[in-house]
Simulated scan of single mutants.
Amino acid sequence: MDTGGFRCIECNEEAAELHRDYRNGILKLTICEFCQKPVDRYIEYDPVIILIDVILCKTQAFRHILFNTSLNIHWKLCVFCLLCEAYFRWSLLQGSEQSSDPADIIRYTKEWDFYGMFGLAALELWAFCSGVLWFLWVAVGALQGEKLDFRLLLRALLLSCYGKVLLIPAVIWEHDYTPLCLGLIKLLVLTSNSQAIRVILNSSRRLSLMAVCVGLLAEACVVQACEKLPLSIQDFLTFE
């Protein structure tokens, strides 16, 4: 197999290969030269088990996904998560507008409210990622003099937003505990973001948490700016 670019999921040291193929379906996992453990045991695991470990924010699972796989679905996952968030906000907007005319349901599907919510969600995500990357550039790049791979960091941030997919079940199975579920989903996303930053930079938990907090601050500033605009983005995109 191609060499280079791999990492040991246990000690984070570089590795030339993950396994050796002796043909006839015989694979032998490569042992790390530093920690004397398999470089990546997840290559033998079922994807469901890997997904569970990712949800549990295990460092080894994040290293497997970010370093040892060629998973390039971060932009597709980003768009899908934005659609989930936009649908959730759009459902709240439509739920607050009571109407007795069944034809309004069809009319609402043709309006631009959903696209406005998608635009707002994309703007907030852009502000969050920009805030995180700016902080890391200052704290790690400028102060410590280390070179950052912003493409890899952005890929890690987008992939770690997978928790937003849970917004759809929260809308479908709406109940009295929905606000609590939304809070837990937000906490899952932020925890995953922090863990992804920590894995990419091999840094302390404090640095990754500070980066996430700066991203949240940038996102909050954008939200406040949009709310104070004389003509909101939602009103601009909605034709009635």
Rank of each mutant, 00 (worst) to 15 (best):
A156K: 02
A156I: 04
A156H: 06
L158T: 03
L159H: 11
L159Y: 11
L159G: 08
S160R: 01
C161K: 05
C161Y: 07
Y162N: 07
Y162V: 06
Y162T: 06
G163K: 01
G163I: 01
K164M: 06
V165S: 15
L167Q: 05
L167Y: 05
L167N: 04
I168T: 11
P169R: 01
P169T: 02
V171P: 12
V171E: 15
V171Q: 09
V171T: 06
I172M: 10
I172H: 05
I172F: 04
W173M: 15
W173K: 07
W173Q: 13
H175A: 10
D176W: 02
D176P: 05
D176K: 13
Y177S: 15
T178V: 04
L180H: 04
C181V: 11
C181M: 12
C181Q: 09
L182T: 00
L182R: 02
G183Q: 04
G183N: 04
G183V: 02
G183F: 10
G183S: 05
G183A: 03
L184R: 04
L184I: 12
L184A: 10
K186H: 14
L187T: 11
L188G: 08
L188A: 12
L188R: 13
T191H: 06
S192Y: 02
S192A: 09
N193I: 10
N193D: 13
S194I: 00
S194P: 13
Q195D: 13
A196V: 07
A196C: 15
I197K: 11
I197H: 10
I197T: 15
V199A: 15
V199R: 03
I200F: 03
I200W: 02
I200M: 09
L201K: 10
L201E: 08
N202K: 13
N202L: 12
S203T: 14
S203C: 13
S204G: 12
S204E: 09
R205H: 08
R206T: 14
L207T: 00
L207N: 03
S208I: 01
L209I: 06
L209K: 01
A211N: 03
A211R: 00
A211E: 15
A211G: 04
V212E: 07
C213S: 11
V214I: 07
V214K: 00
V214A: 02
V214F: 00
G215I: 00
G215H: 04
L216K: 14
L217K: 15
L217Q: 05
A218W: 02
A218H: 06
E219R: 08
C221V: 06
